[in-house]
C-alpha cells in the first residue's frame, strides 16, 4: 500500500514526550542522552505520529474543505442521507495496539511505513451492538532498509455510541 516517509525530528520527539507527560531527558537532552543511549531516542509509541506525514490523513482538516468538527454549527458537515456514505464516522474506535521494537528510533532517521491489511472479524456486544474489527500491520523501515518497528493496530466500528 501507500508509502509516506516520516522524518524523525528532535523537536517532534520533545513535543511528543511533553504531550504524554514524560519528563525523561532521554527525549530532549542531547548531553544526557549521548551518555545513556548514544543520543536522543523516540518514546515507544512515537510512530503513532506518522499520521502527520500522511498527506491524505482523514483526521486532519484540509484547507478549503469542510471539516466535521464544530465552527458556526456543531459540525461542519451536513448529515448524509445515505448512512453508508459517512466517511467521518464517530463510531470508529481503537481497540488494540501492539509494537515490536527491532532497532532504536533516533532523530535523523527516515521511516518508510509499509502497511498491509490483517484479519477482519465480528463480535456481538451488549454495550455497543455489532462490533466489526479490522487489523492493520505497519512495518517501519529506516533509510538503510532495516526494519525498526512493527506496529499492529486493531480498529473497531461499533453500532452504538460506547460510554463507560
Amino acid at each position: 500500500m501507500s508509502k509516506k516517509n516520516m522524518p524523525i525530528e528532535k523537536g517532534h520527539i520533545m513535543m511528543f514526550a511533553r504531550a504524554i507527560g514524560d519528563e525523561n531527558p532521554i527525549y530532549s537532552d542531547e548531553n544526557y542522552a549521548s551518555e545513556k543511549t548514544g543520543g536522543i531516542i523516540a518514546p515507544p509509541t512515537f510512530t503513532q505520529s506518522s499520521a502527520q506525514f500522511d498527506p491524505d490523513y482523514f483526521l486532519r482538516p484540509k484547507i478549503g474543505k469542510p471539516w466535521f468538527g464544530s465552527g458556526k454549527n456543531p459540525t461542519g458537515i451536513e448529515k448524509s442521507k445515505n448512512k453508508t456514505e459517512s466517511s467521518t464516522s464517530t463510531n470508529i474506535l481503537h481497540a488494540e495496539q501492539h509494537f515490536e521494537y527491532h532497532l532504536p528510533l533516533k532523530p535523523g532517521d527516515t521511516l518508510t511505513p509499509q502497511v498491509s491489511e490483517g484479519e477482519k472479524w465480528e463480535k456481538e456486544s451488549k454495550r455497543a451492538g455489532l462490533l466489526k474489527f479490522s487489523e492493520s500491520i505497519t512495518k517501519y523501515y529506516n533509510q538503510d532498509d532495516e526494519l525498526v518497528i512493527t506496529a499492529r493496530s486493531v480498529g473497531v466500528v461499533t453500532e452504538k455510541v460506547v460510554e463507560n
Partner: peptide, 27 residues
C-alpha cells in the same frame, strides 16, 4: 494512544531506555 503513551512512560521508567522489545495493549 495518549493513554498508551502515558502507560509506556511507566514501562520505560521501569525497564530503562532502549530496552523495550514488545509493548501491546487493548483499550
Amino acid at each position: 494512544m495518549l493513554t498508551m503513551g502515558m502507560t509506556g512512560k511507566m514501562i520505560t521508567n521501569l525497564v530503562g531506555d532502549g530496552n523495550l522489545k514488545n509493548f501491546g495493549v487493548r483499550f
